[in-house]
Structures are given as C-alpha cells and as structure tokens.
Simulated scan of single mutants.
Amino acid sequence: MKAVASKTDPGNFFEDFKLGQKLVHATPRTVTAGDVALYTALYGTRFALFSSEAFAKACGFRHAAVDPLIAFHIVFGKTVPDISLNAVANLGYAEGRFHKLITDGMTLSAESEVIGLKENSNRKTGVVYVRTTGMDEFGETVLSYVRWVMVRKRDPDAEVGEQHVPELAAVVPAERLIVPPGLDFSRYDWALAGAPHAFEDYEIGEKIDHVDGMAVEEAEHQMATRLWQNTAKVHFNQFERAKDPSGRRLVYGGVVISTAKALSFNGLQNAGLILAINGGRHVAPFFAGGTVFAWSQVLDKADLGAVGALRLRLVATMDAPCAEFPDKNGEGVYHSGVILDFDYWAAVPKRG
C-alpha cells in the first residue's frame, strides 16, 4: 500500500512567506529542572546564579533562576517547523531583549511576524527575517528577538512577492534594558561566584581570552538540538547534507552560542545574566568533532543603578586557541577559524 503524505507538513519554503505574515507556533513547552540539568550536562555552564537556588535567593529572587539562554533555545525551537525546517543556515540575530526572569515551571510559547524577505541571486534560496516573541502561560512577553535565516525555494522558477530588507538596530540602548524585579547584588558572595571582578574592574576595549576549549561530539549536538525540539533537517538528516562532500550534519548554532557562553565563565564569572542580545552572526558552519574556544571584548558599560551592565562581544573559534590569531584580517575579513560573533548585554554586580 502506497503511503500518502497529505497529513504531514513539509515546512515552508521561501516562496511561501509573505511580508507581514503572522505565525503562531505549536507545542508550548514548560521549563523544568530537567532542562536545567541537561543544559549543564551538554554545555558545562557554571554560573552560580543559575547553579544554586540559595545563591539566587541571596540575590533577591524568590525562586531559582534559569539561564535566559534556555528560554531562547526553547522559543527558537518552537519556530523551526514554520520558519527554518527547510533552511540552509541560520544567519544572525538582532534586537533581542529578555523581559522577565525565567523560572522553573514557566510555560513558554512563541509567535513570529515576517518582517523581511530577500531572494538570493541564484533563485534557489532566499533570506527570511522574522521577529519572534516568546510568552509565558499568562501571555506576558518573556523575550523577543529578530533573526534571519536562509531558506530553500521549493521551485527555483517560482515568482516571489514583495521584498524588503529591514533596518535593524546595531545595539539595544542601555535605557531599554530590563533588570529583573528584585535583583539585588548587595549581598553578592564573590567567593561562591568564583571571582572578585566587579563592574568597576572591566575597561572598555579590554579583551579576555577564556583559555579553555570544549569539543562537541555528534551525539551531543544532536541531543542538544532534540532537547529544544529543533527539527531543522540539516542537523539530523544526512541526506539533506548530500551536497557536502563530508556528509556531516550541521551543528545547531545555538550549541555554539551556549558552549562559548559557558566557556566565558573563566574571566566573566559574574556576568552570567544576559539582559539583551544586540546582534549575532554565525560566521562559518560548525561540525561535530570540532573544539570550541572563545574570547570576549568589553564594548561598552552602563550603570543601571542597582547593577552594572557590560556590553560584551563573544567570539568563538574552532580548533584554534583564540590567542593564536586575530578575529579579522586587515581587510575586515574573518579568520577561517571564527565560527561565531555574538554581541550581548549582561548584568554585573557593582562593588559599591
């Protein structure tokens, strides 16, 4: 008996998207302690604020705090079946803000709006820009961000409707950063956090080599991607990578982000709480078996009153310690070893 696919969803191709299109993504997801444990196991994160409920309560929270990147991954995963199931690659992020503290038991859902479309000159693919909003079970915004992704066309000859490339802010202004209510670093335990470096100790322009490297294996990246219910074919289906001579499956870019962020603990022990994502670019593809290294640069500082905020550029490299080469050459071209360039704001305790 011949199988039929009339009830299955092949995902959207580039020509299926329209400017202004609204997408309500399926499958709400409740954040649990299991997510936190697996996140730690997969990426090796060590920030005290997310490791200890007692530490979080001493910082003014009523409950254990959950790393904002967990919410980012969950919400991102919700969007994949509608936006990037047929993606070639996820390209970048901008204008990301975390509106609420993420806690165990919070249920997240997501909606997106198509804000930009641009067909590529080869007519086989195009870039889709979406603004995604993640909400809790009460419909309140938890996070929002823009991302753009290269998506295949179903038919290279298909005509594409109105196109537009949105203008996106290079940085979330410091005055728009949202400090979680109750956050109080007045009793911050520097020893338990792992380092004495306060807001005042960081200088604009300063670079920090995080020294350590972490390999990502095939089973690890696929487990991480499944954890966030990311169904993009390029991460699992070797036949989708048939044009790649290696036949390797592409590692989800979020794996690189969280691995590099975990590595940043060595030097930025007190900057675990991300307040905003200014921008991000997956500079080159990353495949299993590679080792991720990372370094950071302080781009800016802002005094938010109760806490300080550092604008940080996190650069991840593959198979080469960061001290061995610059990120770009004299012509502004990335070194071949760079795989991620990620710009974000993080809350940091002040000494005063």
Rank of each mutant, 00 (worst) to 15 (best):
248 R>S: 00
317 T>W: 01
263 L>H: 00
274 I>N: 02
209 D>K: 09
200 E>L: 08
192 L>H: 14
203 E>F: 05
276 A>Q: 07
294 A>E: 10
249 R>A: 11
234 V>W: 02
254 G>W: 04
303 D>C: 09
298 V>M: 01
286 F>T: 13
258 S>P: 07
240 E>I: 08
222 Q>S: 11
201 D>H: 08
231 T>K: 03
242 A>V: 15
290 G>C: 10
281 R>M: 06
228 W>S: 11
233 K>C: 12
298 V>H: 02
235 H>Q: 09
290 G>K: 09
292 V>H: 04
294 A>I: 10
222 Q>H: 14
290 G>A: 10
281 R>P: 03
270 N>D: 06
255 V>W: 07
299 L>C: 02
231 T>H: 08
180 P>M: 13
184 D>P: 14
238 Q>M: 13
190 W>R: 15
272 G>Q: 03
316 A>S: 06
193 A>F: 07
301 K>F: 09
317 T>S: 01
274 I>E: 04
211 V>P: 00
256 V>S: 13
176 R>Y: 08
277 I>V: 14
253 G>P: 14
224 A>L: 09
253 G>I: 08
187 R>W: 10
257 I>Q: 02
233 K>T: 12
203 E>L: 11
230 N>V: 12
226 R>V: 12
265 F>L: 12
206 E>M: 15
235 H>S: 11
246 S>Y: 07
265 F>T: 06
284 A>G: 08
185 F>E: 11
317 T>I: 04
254 G>E: 06
317 T>R: 01
320 A>R: 13
319 D>W: 12
185 F>N: 09
190 W>T: 15
228 W>F: 15
280 G>E: 00
186 S>C: 12
225 T>K: 07
233 K>V: 14
172 V>A: 01
268 L>E: 01
302 A>G: 04
196 P>F: 15
230 N>I: 09
220 E>N: 08
312 L>R: 00
215 A>L: 08
292 V>N: 00
260 A>H: 01
261 K>D: 01
280 G>S: 01
212 D>R: 13
302 A>L: 03
191 A>L: 14
277 I>L: 00
286 F>R: 05
275 L>Y: 04
314 L>H: 03
267 G>K: 08
202 Y>L: 06
249 R>F: 10
197 H>S: 07
289 G>D: 07
254 G>H: 04
180 P>D: 11
286 F>Y: 11
239 F>T: 15
259 T>Y: 03
257 I>N: 01
218 E>M: 13
236 F>M: 04
205 G>D: 07
246 S>N: 03
317 T>H: 02
313 R>Q: 10
278 N>S: 10
194 G>H: 05
273 L>H: 00
320 A>E: 14
249 R>H: 12
192 L>C: 07
267 G>F: 02
227 L>I: 14
282 H>T: 01
235 H>L: 09
318 M>T: 07
227 L>A: 14
257 I>C: 01
272 G>L: 04
199 F>P: 13
311 R>T: 06
309 A>C: 06
230 N>Y: 09
300 D>Q: 10
173 P>H: 00
296 S>L: 06
237 N>G: 08
185 F>M: 13
299 L>W: 00
298 V>C: 04
173 P>D: 06
207 K>W: 03
312 L>K: 03
310 L>N: 02
316 A>K: 01
280 G>P: 05
293 F>K: 05
